[in-house]
Design a binder for these strands. Sequence first.
DNA 1: GTCTATATTCGGATAGAC
DNA 2: GTCTATCCGAATATAGAC
Lengths: 207, 207
Amino acid sequence: MTTAGPDRRKVRHEAKRAEILAQAWLLAHRDGLAAISLRDLADSVGLRQPSLYVYFESKLNLYDAMFADGYRQLLTFVAERSYGGDPRRALARFLGDLVQFSSDDIVRHQMLFQRTIPGFEPSAETFALALEFYEVARQMLAAAGVTDQRSIDIFSALANGLAHQQVANEPGGRRWVRLAGRVTEMFLADIDQRRRTSPARKGSRRL
Amino acid sequence: MTTAGPDRRKVRHEAKRAEILAQAWLLAHRDGLAAISLRDLADSVGLRQPSLYVYFESKLNLYDAMFADGYRQLLTFVAERSYGGDPRRALARFLGDLVQFSSDDIVRHQMLFQRTIPGFEPSAETFALALEFYEVARQMLAAAGVTDQRSIDIFSALANGLAHQQVANEPGGRRWVRLAGRVTEMFLADIDQRRRTSPARKGSRRL
DNA sequence: GTCTATATTCGGATAGAC
DNA sequence: GTCTATCCGAATATAGAC
């Protein structure tokens, strides 16, 4: 099928859309996520500003595409790694990888985990990607024997806290990435400790 | 001295400045921190927009004042509480209070702990207030016997992570606030554990 | 699909009278 | 200190020719 006109058109359209998206990330790094200008964006892909509307129906729609793109990157990132073997070691690697993922791209971290763009809320379809990721994380925890909500809440805080400190204080570095192993040990030791003492919960005084 | 003209003028000026600042926080809640408009702000304090420049020399200067105001609130908040008695329990209360402080005002949390306003960097004088707070935190940790940098890094991640999850998922609530005690226990148990096994560090395998 | 031209609104900031 | 008037630039978005 060399004369598949409509197909080629669609492929071209999607390719250009992807190019625009990639440039949007670059501009976000340069100017800040909330300060992307559609003029600059159009310039960077060799278009005039109004032509962008062929690919994105509004600026918020562009942000939505970036949000979706970021979570797809995250899902691919974790899917590429295998977390087999001992579930506890796997959890430690998983945590380190997440912090590394944030450290690798501070703007992407802002987009996915901090919601600071005035007026932007991800659409339902896009948010489904986020939920997909949290399901992966839930399964990682379940494999390590962690299923209660409070422990899940703590683990999410650990992951987000390490990632945040990394991007805020040393973007691109590994200072907090390297703490993932110790933090996972600490977390699991606490789980074990509580399992031993509960439901009686004697012997350790609550702070 | 009832005729202290210059004094009265200065007091009036400072009062108006404080009023503007308070309204700026309100507007930030309504429109988003990065979306404050000086016109709206002027309206809300009964002034015309150019008159704001009598009190703040630029919009970034206004943000700087908000940043300073937020850290002063935080310093007052912790100073009002006494963290006497057992240092470990004090640390647990300190952590819970910090998460509560963030939960109480999501915009203030954004301003102090996430740096997402394009182009804004706190001035040196203002940043000194932030350092003052981190010194308080450092002393709380030192009192509980925690002085090494890696442990401090972990604690900062714990605090920020709990606060972030709280404001992101349940602003105004206490779901992560309530985890502060358990998380502090977990943290200190890890410190103790490492003290027992180091420097030999035998008996526990690293994840 | 891309363009030119333009609508429309809004932003922060300044000049200068009072 | 506050005002009116205005500057200047930037933003997103739309209309309509090609």
